[in-house]
Computed example of a mutant assay.
Amino acid sequence: MLNRLLHYLRNFYVATGLGLLVWMTFFDANDLPMQIRNWWKLREQEAEATFYQTQIQQVQTERREVLGNDQLREKFAREKYLMKKPTEDIFVIVDEKNGPIE
């Protein structure tokens, strides 16, 4: 009798545990596929954050170079933004892929 009761309780706990595992894996709001999607999204956003940090450092370096010297400021504006004086003509030479040659 006691053996039968223990067997029933053990089966009850195993079935309850399996049911809970299935529920948490597939039916819960934070199910396994959602966790995987969130993990991939986190990795992508960390990569973007790294990219933007390097871009910020480059812009800060350019800013320090440009703000310190008038000649560098003019050179930077001419090369980066293709600015010109009113009496000048600018010719941009491009390669086969229609990209500017630097």
Score class of each variant (00 low, 15 high):
residue 1 M to G: 12
residue 1 M to E: 08
residue 1 M to Q: 07
residue 2 L to D: 12
residue 2 L to N: 13
residue 5 L to N: 10
residue 6 L to E: 05
residue 7 H to P: 09
residue 7 H to V: 11
residue 7 H to F: 13
residue 10 R to P: 08
residue 10 R to E: 01
residue 10 R to I: 12
residue 10 R to G: 11
residue 12 F to C: 08
residue 12 F to V: 12
residue 12 F to P: 05
residue 14 V to A: 04
residue 15 A to E: 09
residue 15 A to T: 13
residue 16 T to K: 13
residue 17 G to S: 02
residue 18 L to H: 03
residue 18 L to V: 04
residue 18 L to C: 04
residue 18 L to T: 04
residue 19 G to R: 10
residue 20 L to E: 13
residue 22 V to S: 04
residue 22 V to W: 11
residue 23 W to K: 09
residue 24 M to K: 13
residue 25 T to S: 03
residue 25 T to Q: 07
residue 25 T to K: 01
residue 25 T to E: 00
residue 25 T to N: 01
residue 26 F to T: 06
residue 28 D to A: 03
residue 29 A to R: 08
residue 30 N to R: 04
residue 30 N to I: 01
residue 31 D to I: 02
residue 31 D to P: 04
residue 32 L to K: 04
residue 32 L to A: 05
residue 32 L to M: 05
residue 33 P to C: 00
residue 33 P to W: 09
residue 33 P to I: 01
residue 34 M to G: 15
residue 34 M to P: 14
residue 35 Q to T: 11
residue 37 R to M: 08
residue 37 R to W: 14
residue 37 R to P: 00
residue 38 N to S: 08
residue 38 N to V: 14
residue 38 N to H: 03
residue 40 W to S: 15
residue 40 W to C: 14
residue 40 W to L: 14
residue 40 W to E: 13
residue 41 K to E: 13
residue 42 L to Q: 06
residue 42 L to Y: 05
residue 43 R to Q: 15
residue 43 R to M: 12
residue 44 E to K: 13
residue 45 Q to S: 14
residue 46 E to M: 09
residue 46 E to F: 04
residue 46 E to D: 06
residue 46 E to L: 06
residue 47 A to S: 07
residue 47 A to Q: 12
residue 47 A to P: 01
residue 47 A to L: 08
residue 48 E to D: 12
residue 48 E to I: 13
residue 49 A to Y: 13
residue 49 A to I: 14
residue 50 T to E: 06
residue 51 F to W: 07
residue 51 F to N: 02
residue 51 F to I: 09
residue 52 Y to F: 13
residue 52 Y to C: 06
residue 53 Q to L: 12
residue 54 T to Q: 02
residue 55 Q to V: 15
residue 55 Q to M: 15
residue 55 Q to K: 13
residue 56 I to A: 10
residue 56 I to G: 11
residue 56 I to S: 12
residue 57 Q to E: 11
residue 57 Q to N: 12
residue 57 Q to F: 02
residue 59 V to F: 06
residue 59 V to Q: 02
residue 59 V to Y: 05
residue 60 Q to M: 15
residue 60 Q to T: 14
residue 61 T to H: 14
residue 61 T to M: 13
residue 62 E to I: 15
residue 62 E to Q: 14
residue 63 R to W: 11
residue 64 R to S: 07
residue 65 E to Q: 06
residue 65 E to H: 06
residue 66 V to N: 00
residue 66 V to W: 03
residue 66 V to L: 02
residue 67 L to C: 04
residue 67 L to I: 11
residue 67 L to Y: 08
residue 68 G to C: 05
residue 69 N to R: 05
residue 70 D to P: 12
residue 74 E to D: 15
residue 76 F to C: 08
residue 76 F to W: 00
residue 77 A to D: 11
residue 77 A to T: 10
residue 77 A to Q: 10
residue 77 A to L: 09
residue 79 E to R: 00
residue 80 K to V: 13
residue 83 M to P: 06
residue 83 M to G: 04
residue 85 K to E: 08
residue 85 K to I: 04
residue 85 K to W: 07
residue 86 P to Y: 04
residue 86 P to R: 03
residue 87 T to G: 05
residue 88 E to A: 02
residue 89 D to C: 11
residue 90 I to E: 03
residue 91 F to V: 04
residue 92 V to P: 04
residue 92 V to L: 11
residue 93 I to N: 07
residue 94 V to D: 07
residue 94 V to R: 06
residue 95 D to G: 06
residue 98 N to Q: 07
residue 100 P to W: 05
residue 100 P to D: 01
residue 101 I to N: 02
residue 101 I to Y: 09
residue 101 I to C: 00
residue 101 I to T: 00
residue 102 E to Y: 01
